[in-house]
Write a protein that binds this DNA or RNA. Structure first.
Lengths: 151, 151
DNA sequence: TTTAGAATTAGAATGATTCTAATTGCATTA
DNA sequence: TAATGCAATTAGAATCATTCTAATTCTAAA
């Protein structure tokens, strides 16, 4: 064991600002902020590669490993959500409002849909007594408005 | 181009029986039947490796490639469903009744939960007019009864 | 300033799945 | 019954997304 007590986490100063959200926090380093900003200004649920491409326009030397690292930290902190709609690449989303994902099987686009105000999902399924629910992932697959019209 | 017309698909004879379900069909070869039977008698949503293990007790020489191949054919035919609860291995399920998956984040077990009789999922989300829904994937994550009790 | 820990990086390693090419099996046609 | 041709099966290679590793750089507190 090391005799010295663990140092307290660094406090926000200059660029090293933090955001406390949902009881967790992250050091918002420049790269993490860029990744977050890219995601916050996207509505298309980009993959890690998509995010790499977009962040590169501001930070040409950022690596894929860093993008994955940033995404993990932001996800752990609850600032963004990882979305697994199908096997293969994960997608990411900065919309923290309760919502479901609509996936168009024709054009591949993913969009958010928001529930009606009175929707209480848990009560519709007969879960055994004592079950605790922490989150729900709802994905709706089909054909979007545009693709339906084109047909 | 080959001058001969394509041969009509083989008809059911002996082992080469088919099942027509949801407008599609599969040749139910011995391996496909074994994979299907394993799945139909499992409630734990096994992965491809799990299925390989179980089928091996009857067909010791079956390969992982064949298991994947069978799973793909059975999925395409609508006899089973692929379930993607998190990144990594896909799981498979032969329960074709409308249901949602409950995933215990403590013990990792996956179980089915069935909706209340009057549940009409589509009407709860404000999807753009013209959107066509073909299927919904609903995953509920949390702590199962047993793990909650142990705590 | 020094220093310890965290962030970043490139590239290797991993894990799950898909692809490829060769072989085998089965059912129709000769 | 034998020949034929497609589908099924196989082992192993290839691929893809992600995670890991080890080295380097950065940041902020001492």
């Amino acid at each position: 064991m090391n005799a010295s007590a663990p140092r307290a986490p660094a406090k926000p100063t200059g660029l090293d600002c933090r955001l406390a959200v949902l009881g967790s926090d992250v050091r918002l380093t420049p790269h993490r902020r860029e990744v977050f900003d890219v995601l916050a200004s996207s509505t298309d649920h980009p993959t890690a590669y998509d995010i790499l491409d977009r962040v590169k326009s501001r930070s040409p030397h950022i690596s894929l490993a860093t993008v994955y690292n940033c995404l993990e930290h932001l996800t752990t902190a609850g600032l963004i959500k990882q979305v697994q709609l199908e096997r293969g690449q994960s997608r990411y989303c900065a919309n923290l409002h309760e919502h479901v994902h609509f996936h168009c099987e024709t054009c591949g686009k993913v969009s958010d849909a928001h529930p009606a105000a009175d929707f209480d999902p848990a009560k519709f399924w007969n879960l055994p007594k004592g079950t605790k629910v922490t989150r729900m992932d709802i994905a709706i697959h089909g054909t979007c408005e545009a693709c339906t019209a084109k047909h």
